[in-house]
């Protein structure tokens, strides 16, 4: 006789998975490209590609969330930085501020490089903005305080990736979400997808033979992160198998689904892991396997968040 009702939710679906995916990916992309520029070697193209696409991803992520609000004008309360003082326990407040400031630091870090690039200086509106005395002054300041701006962006970036997991962790009724593994899993996944995305950029758009060391380093980091993600997922599997009915039902939903098993675990993690491992150990004769691995990791990054949203099970005692 079952007096309980078990159900999944239909409030936060694919669109919040997009929000979490693009938020994490954009933030980690910005952080990695700036750290590379600061500590590996100055890399104008990588910073420009990383910063601009990262900011676009963060803007897209915010737009998805904003589009689904019920009362759009009330968003003003969460855009105000003071929200962190009166709602310090609300992760969306932190996430919104992190994303906003990440876009600011991201653009400021890229500003000197933007002004060095003829393509942007020639662009109709962008060019005239970049030529203003304010842009020149800001660019000078950013050049002088490059590492400070870079680290502010990096700290914000790490904050966003952790936030995407903390957001789900703050929902106590669902065992799959309400545990310390979620922020860790989403952070590892965000940085893994960002390395994969940058590998795609470096192998398709920024084709420079001198970048072989960066490509190799990124691939090595990505292999480690994918392996870590697999270990975390294995822990999740064990955690959800017993302890609570909510968790057990989530496990049934996930591990009986071919999309999760073959699509995400198989093609989103295991296949790219071996492709990248071969690239790290022996190298590939062409760029295609690395690009394919990168695209699979990106697909897997979205699928993880998608399945997580749909597999959260609520247990109601009626």
């Amino acid at each position: 006789m079952d007096t309980m009702t078990y159900t999944t939710q239909s409030l936060w679906t694919w669109w919040i998975a997009m929000y979490l995916f693009f938020g994490g990916l954009g933030a980690a992309t910005l952080s990695i490209s700036f750290l590379t520029d600061m500590y590996c070697r100055p890399h104008r193209k990588l910073v420009l590609w990383g910063a601009l696409s990262g900011v676009v991803m963060l803007a897209l992520s915010s737009a998805v969330l904003f589009g689904h609000l019920l009362h759009h004008t009330a968003v003003i309360y969460v855009l105000n930085p003071l929200v962190l003082f009166y709602q310090p326990h609300a992760w969306i407040a932190w996430g919104t501020q992190f994303i906003l400031w990440m876009m600011v630091w991201g653009l400021l870090y890229a500003l000197p490089y933007l002004r060095e690039t003829p393509l942007f200086m020639r662009m109709p509106l962008v060019g005239s903005l970049l030529k203003t005395s304010l842009a020149e002054w800001l660019s000078g300041c950013c050049m002088k305080r490059r590492r400070i701006v870079g680290w502010l962006a990096t700290i914000n970036g790490i904050g966003i990736t952790v936030y995407t997991g903390l957001l789900l962790q703050s929902f106590p009724a669902v065992a799959l979400w309400h545990n310390p593994g979620v922020p860790l899993l989403f952070t590892v996944s965000a940085f893994s997808t960002a390395f994969a995305y940058l590998l795609v950029l470096l192998n398709v758009f920024i084709l420079d033979e001198n970048d072989q060391d960066i490509r190799h380093r990124y691939e090595r980091f990505d292999v480690i992160l994918i392996a870590t993600e697999l270990v975390i997922l294995f822990s999740f599997f064990n955690y959800t198998l017993s302890g609570s009915e909510s968790g057990y039902r989530s496990a049934q939903l996930l591990w009986n689904d071919f999309g999760w098993l073959i699509g995400f675990i198989g093609f989103g993690l295991i296949v790219p892991f071996f492709l990248e491992l071969k690239g790290v150990i022996r190298g590939w004769g062409s760029r295609f396997p690395t690009v394919a691995a990168g695209l699979l990791v990106l697909m897997g990054g979205y699928m993880l968040r998608h399945y997580f949203m749909y597999a959260g099970v609520y247990a109601y005692p009626w």
């Binding site: 939710q9 409030l11 609000l69 019920l70 009362h71 609300a90 969306i92 703050s170 009724a173």
Partner: peptide
């Protein structure tokens, strides 16, 4: 209601399914 932006996080957090949306 004037301050609520309708992100639905509260409904996700509620273990008692007590909240619902009011749209335009």
């Amino acid at each position: 209601p004037d301050r609520c932006m309708g992100c639905r996080a509260c409904a996700m957090a509620c273990p008692y399914d007590a909240r619902y949306e009011v749209t335009y």
